[in-house]
Design a protein around this nucleic acid. Structure first.
Lengths: 191, 191
DNA sequence: CAATGTAAAGGACATTTGTCCCATGCTTCA
DNA sequence: TGAAGCATGGGACAAATGTCCTTTACATTG
């Protein structure tokens, strides 16, 4: 549920300390909105510490959370090549420490550092591999099963992540989430 | 709804005709299952002609279609690096013509041909960019809106793609699809 | 040619989920 | 400190969707 990428985190840290490329540290307070959907930005970020949410809002103001991003996860990388607008907003849930670099630096790294290139391709592939079954599962199983699954993956999620965000992650309303949580408490007792 | 990638299609064709790399043509009849979910394969495919569906099945036998793949779309690429099992099954909907190469050749190409490398990264990024809003939209809007949207993107979809597949793509049952189609016919008249 | 299988359409009912409320407790802030 | 705002929890009802079943038409095959 909260995605991480230790390998990339370590590598970026190494690149940053080498000072061979223009990579900066940049920190954000909780609730800071770093990317706003449909806007254009020139930077790529990699999370060092903390957690952010990446979400899509529709015209009715409903949010749909794509991923919770933890250490080593990057964002802004999908827009590097064609200088596209973002598809997601990104907001810090906890205080966030990141490394950041320009599109230009990112492309330069991709072109010259084959290890970085491989790590980025793997990261992209993993985002796809992860997304597919998640949405599939959420459609085919009742809410309670989804909650049990999350609980298994990340036991403290109900404490760390606000209810509204959990609901938006599963793609349901807070009301339905509450109903499901109550029934889990009644049944399995100990949720 | 049916994804294509003309740029990659053209480039692979060029690579194939150059004979510099070991790339083969391989064709499949409609309904052939090319990849079975959770198995391991050693090849990457790029579609030349025809259409395939890429889908996840759950234990109850329900399918969830991820993408309809048209010319220029690749599959099997996500498993190249760590020799992972597939997350999706892939089945030809129409007779399918592909180019195919081994994982080894694919990695060699990524490492030595920077234009290929860039095309692949873009293709991965586009898969992600495309997936996110689709699932989000499907959750937040009524079925009828989703159908109108598909109709706009690809007017003949109801003729080309079997009903069951359309339902599995939207993530609903054929029954619900029929209901929605009927109401669209009654209202907008001309669906 | 009969037989079997499969896609499509839809009726009837059950279930799930959403919508719209209201109430409570906690935090924030002027 | 009082007011406003927000997260949480849940009742009552409405709407959307699924389940189960039956029918029809058409294709495939022994």
């Amino acid at each position: 549920m909260i995605r991480t990428n230790p390998e990339l985190a370590a590598y970026i840290h190494k690149l940053w300390s080498s000072r061979d490329y223009s990579i900066q540290e940049m920190d954000f307070n909780a609730k800071t909105i770093i990317f706003e959907q449909d806007k254009r930005y020139g930077k790529v970020y990699v999370i060092r510490e903390g957690m952010a949410k990446c979400y899509i809002s529709d015209e009715n103001g409903k949010d749909f959370i794509q991923e919770f991003l933890g250490p080593g996860m990057e964002f802004g990388e999908l827009e590097v090549f064609d200088n596209l607008t973002t598809i997601c907003s990104v907001e810090a849930i906890q205080n966030l420490k990141t490394f950041t670099m320009s599109h230009q630096t990112y492309q330069q790294l991709l072109a010259t550092d084959s290890q970085f290139n491989t790590l980025v391709i793997k990261a992209l592939a993993n985002k796809i591999r992860y997304k597919a079954p998640r949405h599939s599962y959420q459609h085919s199983y009742p809410i309670e099963d989804n909650l049990l699954r999350l609980k298994k993956q990340f036991p403290e999620f109900t404490e760390v992540i606000p209810k509204k965000d959990i609901a938006n992650y599963i793609g349901i309303t807070p009301r339905s989430l509450n109903r499901a949580l109550r029934e889990l408490k009644d049944k399995h007792n100990g949720f």
